[in-house]
């Protein structure tokens, strides 16, 4: 069986929006979205020592190869990156179109997503991709099991816990409570370089550039502003006296 895992390369450290383009500044260092490490881990767990194939798929700049290599170092077998100047600035509609096109080529039995992209916090992309692929989708999976031709998922909602079953091929987004992602071993890191890594342009994907990037998007950022002001927030580094500082603060606020 084949399992595809969608992973995003996100900026590391404090992120900022570029005031002129109103887009996320992606010029700095990036890393594998940590929520997606849970999805990679789950794929590897499902694979076990079977001959199933795990393919990591991403849409992003060339630098996103770093994150794909992390997935390979963890144990994924192959990586696919959709990368094209014309794809920059894709919103949900455009991103889902491009990822679905890449996944269509893979026709995996199971497509996994992480819980959310830490830079966008959408927690929505899987449902759009599943709709484009015409496949059943289950999100927030905290437990996942393959059972013959179907997948069984336990998940938390506002009303408690549900157990859902979906026939394969299916799309599942996992929660960050599903597992503890492994750290890549040195051997894994060395081996990752030799694993297949395909970079696809929009043309190679068979998607028109008008369907991608800002041209293919249906939402826009009109203006950026400051958040509502908050009264005197304080931040301190623990120099060994943090406990005292907290008690002083609580005393000042008459909370202790």
């Amino acid at each position: 069986m084949k399992i595809a895992v969608c992973v995003k390369h996100v900026p590391e450290g404090p992120s900022r929006l570029d005031p002129s383009s109103k887009r996320l500044d992606r010029s700095g260092e990036g890393a594998l979205n940590h929520f997606d490490a849970n999805a990679v881990e789950e794929a590897l767990r499902l694979k076990g020592d079977s001959d199933s194939e795990v393919v990591a798929v991403s849409l992003g700049p060339q630098k996103a190869l770093d994150s794909l290599r992390k997935a390979l170092a963890m144990g994924a077998d192959r990586a696919v990156l959709v990368s094209d100047e014309a794809a920059a600035g894709s919103d949900l509609v455009a991103t889902s179109r491009l990822l679905a096109a890449a996944l269509e080529k893979e026709s995996a039995d199971l497509v996994l997503f992480g819980q959310q992209a830490s830079d966008a916090d959408g927690a929505v992309l899987w449902a759009a991709v599943a709709e484009r692929l015409g496949r059943p989708v289950v999100s927030q999976a905290m437990e996942l099991a393959l059972d013959g031709g179907s997948v069984r998922v336990k998940r938390q909602t506002e009303f408690g816990y549900d157990t859902l079953e979906a026939p394969l091929p299916a799309v599942v987004a996992v929660s960050d409570a599903i597992n503890e992602p492994r750290y890549p071993s040195l051997k894994g890191i060395m081996g990752a370089k030799k694993k297949p890594q395909d970079v696809l342009s929009l043309a190679e994907l068979g998607v028109d550039s008008g369907e991608a990037g800002e041209a293919g998007s249906r939402t826009t950022v009109l203006a950026l502003g400051d958040p509502p002001a908050r009264a005197d927030a304080r931040k301190i580094e623990d120099d060994g006296n943090a406990a005292e500082a907290i008690v002083d603060f609580l005393a000042e606020k008459r909370l202790v």
Partner: peptide, 23 residues
């Protein structure tokens, strides 16, 4: 937003090729 509504909204966005602004 809810676990249910988020997945409906994103599915509908793809179905109708419509813009979805979230959060």
């Amino acid at each position: 937003n809810s676990v249910l509504a988020a997945d409906i909204a994103a599915g509908l966005a793809a179905r109708l090729d419509a813009g979805l602004n979230w959060d």
